[in-house]
């Protein structure tokens, strides 16, 4: 029996039905390793333990637990909750960390309810003080910074994707199979499935260094090519305001704001976006904000580091040409 250090952080990483690590594992393990010993937990189809163990050690996991299960592809969340419960029983972690993804949050919430643990959601970082692990949160669109902790026991934390750039050094591979007793909790039945991992060459909106967003000022879905052109010139991701989504220009998954994705990139460029509070709540912690809008009273200018009152249809093409020229 291998022992686990007292400062173990149990990290649930996500794996595709075919056994491939999802993006985000490096971020979770990096954050965990910054405050303790990262113990990675993955569910995978049979025959993937050694390979995943090596991959997770390379990302900084000091120890790796793999629950091999044929239910992995056909289940939604129950096997992950059962595996978390089994892993927590042997590791006795100081904290449990998952991504604040749809599946990660579901598993974390159910594990917290099952184990009676305190739950800290959508953290943007973790640290420790003399009393234990602390989760840092950015709330109300980043207007407030709040720290939370567990009154007792392990804190279960979901980490906002793309919020932490801490990465760990590779560790020697140390993988073990984790036996998991099925809880028998009622589970959903998957009737149809498809991978949607973007075939796009553009970065994902969450966690992108550069985001170019378009708003109602674009006027149509076709005109969104203006946003795409600038995003591609800068190597950035594409976002949109709620107004642009509601007008049907782009898919809801691209919405930045209170009810969409929250981003905090190095550079955020807002094209034809007025900057309603709902939008600002999703991007106002960006490091540098540039706004182009023809309305000089648009509230987006109140938070822009560089604002241009002008027509996006003339300014953006000139900007793209100038970027290409500067890059040579």
């Amino acid at each position: 029996m291998i022992g686990y250090p007292a400062n173990s952080i149990l990290v649930l990483v996500e794996v595709s039905p075919s056994g491939q690590l999802r993006s985000g594992a490096a971020e979770l393990i990096g954050a965990a390793a910054s405050v303790g010993s990262a113990v990675a937990l993955a569910l995978a189809p049979t025959g993937n333990a050694e390979r995943l163990g090596t991959e997770l050690a390379a990302l900084g996991a000091a120890q790796v637990l793999i629950s091999e299960t044929e239910e992995h592809a056909s289940s939604v969340v129950v096997p992950a909750v059962d595996a978390l419960a089994a892993a927590a029983a042997v590791v006795a972690p100081e904290a449990v960390l998952t991504a604040n993804s749809i599946r990660g949050r579901d598993a974390a919430a159910r594990f917290a309810a099952r184990s009676g643990s305190a739950l800290a959601l959508d953290a943007v970082g973790i640290s420790r003080d003399e009393e234990g692990i602390i989760a840092h949160h950015s709330v109300y669109g980043g207007a407030y910074l709040v720290d939370s902790a567990a009154s007792t026991g392990a804190l279960v934390i979901t980490l906002r994707q793309g919020s932490s750039d801490l990465r760990s050094e590779a560790q020697p591979s140390n993988v073990q199979q984790l036996p998991v007793a099925a809880s028998g909790a009622p589970e959903a039945t998957i009737t149809a499935y498809r991978e949607t991992a973007a075939a796009s060459s553009r970065p994902e909106l969450r966690g992108a260094d550069i985001v170019v967003s378009g708003g109602r000022g674009l006027g149509s879905g076709e005109n969104f090519s203006l946003v795409e052109g600038l995003a591609d010139a800068l190597g950035g991701a594409i976002g949109a305001s709620r107004a642009a989504v509601d007008a049907g220009y782009v898919a809801q998954t691209m919405q930045v704001g209170q009810t969409g994705v929250t981003v905090a990139p190095q550079l955020y460029i807002a094209l034809g976006i007025s900057g309603a509070i709902q939008h600002r709540a999703g991007m106002q912690t960006s490091k540098t904000i540039i706004a182009i809008n023809k309305d000089p009273d648009a509230p987006i200018f109140d938070i822009a580091d560089f604002g241009v009152v002008g027509d996006i249809f003339t300014v953006v093409p000139q900007l793209v040409a100038a970027i290409e020229a500067k890059r040579g």
Binding site: L119, S148, F306
Partner: peptide, 22 residues
């Protein structure tokens, strides 16, 4: 076990930077 707030602070407001007319 409860999740407790151990500190809360307001981020300084963002100021407007350069603004030009095209």
């Amino acid at each position: 076990a409860r999740s407790i707030v151990i500190s809360a602070a307001q981020r300084p407001a963002r100021n407007a930077g350069i603004r030009i007319e095209d």
